[in-house]
Simulated assay, not measured.
Amino acid sequence: MIKVKTDRYGLECVENKFLKLPNVQKYEVVKRTEDGFVASVEMDNGYEFLLNACVVNQVFPSTVMQLIEKQSMEQGMRILVSPYVSERTAAICEQNEMGYFDYAGNCWFVGHSIYLSEKGNKNPRPKEYKAAAIFERSSVVSSLILRELFVDVTRVWKLKYLAEKVDCSIGQVSKVMNFLQENAWAEKTKDGYMLREPEALLYEWSRIYGKKEASAYALYSLDNVSILEKKLKFLKKDMGIESYLTGFSGGVRYAPVIRYNKVHMYLAPEDIQEAIAYLEMKEVSSGSNVVIFPLENDSYIKDSRKIEESLVVSPVQIYLDCMQLKGRGEEMAEAVLMKEIIK
């Protein structure tokens, strides 16, 4: 756990919240501790209780889990104080009834007839807490490691095995696994690493993955979806061009839960113009019924499968892509998640 010398910000962000409450008569810090401070709160009816604050410079969900495990009412009510508290960390705190306060004024505390909740304040030092790079589209090696983990979400993984499967260094695998462990998405056991809360992990991956819009060709075809998908087979036979279905057209191959009228696919960048000409499509600024994503790296088609004579990207890629689609994209992603990934 990374600790920080308790500065005035850490003290004041808690003090200011409690002193504004009409039912709090008195608030004072009674002592400093190794990892924070202890404060006494006196209610207007004379009732007093202690807050045992743990102050950390940079907090991870794993930090919170450690605090929760050693939480004791004899030490007073444990609260977390940090310059920045992420949404995931905040959710874990609330689920386990642990209060938290950050320097931007965001907070949550429930106890002794007190309810405090404030969210949405912009952190004054956001540059220090950038989104995890391993989830970005450009992080190819990290992406391959994550995809391997989702091949079997119940498996215990060795670093050496993962490095060999992905063809990367053990150091790169270790970096990814340490990050997942810090954020309580993975845990280290005596036999290796295993995922915990894979659904939450995949959701966060899709959220950051979608922040940068994928390059794509929006196209219009006179053919309906069924005819167009049949033509893709001839595209391979006549022109030697492979296409990989994704989005709704790929998702229904795994979980037929929706109807769709737009085809999404991956093609090698050098094949796109030739495919557009062969399929007699044209680029449009609106009203497209075909979207082609350039296959910029092979991570997009890792673990792709042949279903009903069509090549389809993996369930993980379907999830990532469908979560970015408007309409029923999230419903499609959830169906594939439950049927193919979380078994």
Rank of each mutant, 00 (worst) to 15 (best):
S226K: 09
I170N: 12
V141I: 12
L235A: 10
A218V: 02
W185G: 00
A184H: 05
N261K: 15
K237N: 04
R155S: 04
M177H: 09
V141N: 02
L228E: 04
D238M: 06
L232N: 11
F179R: 12
L201Y: 00
S139Y: 11
L195T: 05
E182M: 10
S226W: 02
P256Y: 12
L180T: 03
N178C: 10
K212S: 09
V263R: 00
L201A: 01
F135R: 13
V173T: 07
V166H: 05
S138F: 09
G240V: 13
K237V: 13
F135V: 01
K236W: 08
I208G: 03
A268L: 15
G247Q: 04
E229P: 04
K237F: 05
E182I: 02
T154K: 12
R137F: 12
W185M: 13
S221V: 03
E229I: 02
I170F: 09
N178Q: 10
Y203G: 01
S169W: 04
F234A: 07
D223V: 02
K233Q: 14
K236A: 08
V140E: 14
L267S: 06
W185Q: 08
D167Q: 09
Y203D: 12
M177E: 06
L232H: 10
L222A: 07
S139A: 14
A216Q: 10
F150M: 01
S138C: 07
K262N: 11
E164R: 06
L202H: 12
D223Q: 08
K262I: 12
V151S: 13
D152L: 11
V225W: 10
K188G: 01
G210W: 12
R196H: 03
S169F: 02
L144I: 05
G240Y: 15
Y193K: 11
V166M: 09
V263G: 00
E164T: 04
L149Y: 14
C168L: 01
W157V: 02
E199G: 10
L180Q: 07
G251S: 05
I170E: 14
L146Y: 07
N178A: 15
Y209H: 09
A214L: 15
A186F: 01
V225F: 09
E148Q: 15
L195V: 05
Y217L: 06
V257P: 00
A186I: 06
A200R: 03
L245N: 00
L144K: 12
A163T: 05
G247M: 01
A214I: 14
S243E: 10
I258A: 03
K236D: 08
L202R: 05
A184D: 11
Y161L: 03
K211D: 13
M239L: 14
